[in-house]
Simulated scan of single mutants.
Amino acid sequence: MSDPAPPVAVAPPLERARPRLGVFKFASCDGCQLTLLDCEDELLGIADELEIAHFLEASSHVATGPYDLSLVEGSITTAEDAERIRRIRAESRHLVTIGACATAGGVQALRNYAHVTEYLETVYARPDYIETLATSTPISAHVPVDFELRGCPIDRTQLLEVITAFLAGRKPGIPNHSVCFSCKRRGTVCVTVAHGTPCLGPVTHAGCGAICPAYGRGCYGCFGPAGTTNLPALIPLLHRDGMSDADIGRFLHTFNVTAFVAVEEEDRS
C-alpha cells in the first residue's frame, strides 16, 4: 500500500486592500470634521472598510497619498492654501467638499464684499505679518470637485450616505429640494404663513431636517441655495413680514453668502 499523499499547502487568503481616506482642513472652524467624529459607532464600521490615512482631527498618524477619497473642509484664503489644495487634488481619486466654507466660501467670504486691508488693520496689531488673499473662495474655484456636501455644519446622515455611496460605487442620494419639503414631511406648520416669521426655507437646500422651523424659528439658510430657487418671489414675503431691503441683505449674507449672491445675480440677469 502506497504512502498517503502529503497534504496540499493552502496559501492564506490575501488581505483585501481597503480604499484610503484623507480628511483635510482649510479655513474653517473644524465643525464638519467633528461631524465625522460624532458618527461614533458608524465610524467604527467606516474604519473597517476604509484605511483612514490622513485625518489630523482624529490622529497624529499621517500617511502620504494617493487617497481614494478625500473629504475637504474649509475655504481657500491664502496663496499657500491654493497651492496645497492643488496637491491634494492631484493625490485624490475622488474629492468631496464638506460644509459651507468648502462649498461656498463660508461666513468668512463676507470679506469678498469689503476691503480686506481695513479688516486686517482693525483686527490685528501687526497686520504686516498677515499674508492673506483678498477673498475667501470655495474649493471648486480652484480644483475640480466630484461632489459637494452642503451645511454649516454638514448633516451626519448625509455624510454617511456620501461615504457609503463611494464604497458602493454609486452616486450619493442627497436630496436637492428645499427645506419646505422637509417641513411638510415632519408635519411642521409653516412659520411664515402661521406666524409671519421671516424664513429662507423656500430657497434653502434641505439637509438639516428643518430643525429651526420645527422650533418656531425661520430657516436662515445654513445649507445654501436649493437646486431650484425663486428668490424674487420670496422678497415680497420678507417685506410683508417687516424686513427692509437692508434686513433682507443681512438675512441672505451669512454662512453661504457667495452662493446666495450668485443666485441674486442670476435672477437679475
Rank of each mutant, 00 (worst) to 15 (best):
C183A: 02
F181M: 14
H205A: 09
C183S: 02
P213N: 08
I211S: 12
G196H: 00
C199E: 10
P202S: 14
H205F: 06
V193A: 05
K184W: 04
L200R: 05
G187L: 12
R217S: 13
V203W: 05
C180E: 03
R217C: 06
C190H: 03
T192Q: 14
T188P: 06
V191T: 13
R185Q: 14
C208K: 03
G201A: 15
P198V: 01
C212I: 08
R186C: 08
A194T: 15
I211E: 15
R217T: 03
T192A: 15
G187V: 04
G187H: 09
P202Y: 13
T197Y: 09
S182M: 07
T188G: 11
G187T: 02
Y215F: 11
P202F: 10
R185P: 00
C212Y: 12
R185M: 10
P202R: 15
T197P: 14
S182H: 07
H195S: 06
V203T: 11
A210R: 10
R217K: 09
C208G: 07
H205D: 04
A210N: 13
R186F: 12
C212M: 12
A210F: 05
V203L: 06
F181W: 12
G201I: 08
T204D: 03
G209R: 02
H205M: 13
V203P: 07
C190D: 05
S182W: 06
H195Y: 03
L200N: 02
I211L: 15
H195Q: 10
G207Y: 03
A214N: 05
I211V: 13
H205E: 05
R186G: 03
G196C: 00
T204I: 00
K184G: 04
T204L: 01
C190V: 03
G207A: 03
P213M: 04
H195V: 06
R185V: 07
R185K: 10
V179A: 10
G187N: 09
T204G: 01
G209D: 02
P202M: 13
R186S: 09
C190Y: 00
V179M: 13
G187R: 12
G187E: 07
C190F: 00
R217E: 13
T204S: 02
V203S: 08
C212T: 09
G207W: 02
G209P: 04
L200V: 01
R217N: 11
R217H: 11
V191I: 13
C190Q: 05
L200C: 00
A214L: 07
V191H: 12
R185G: 07
P202H: 14
S178I: 06
P213H: 04
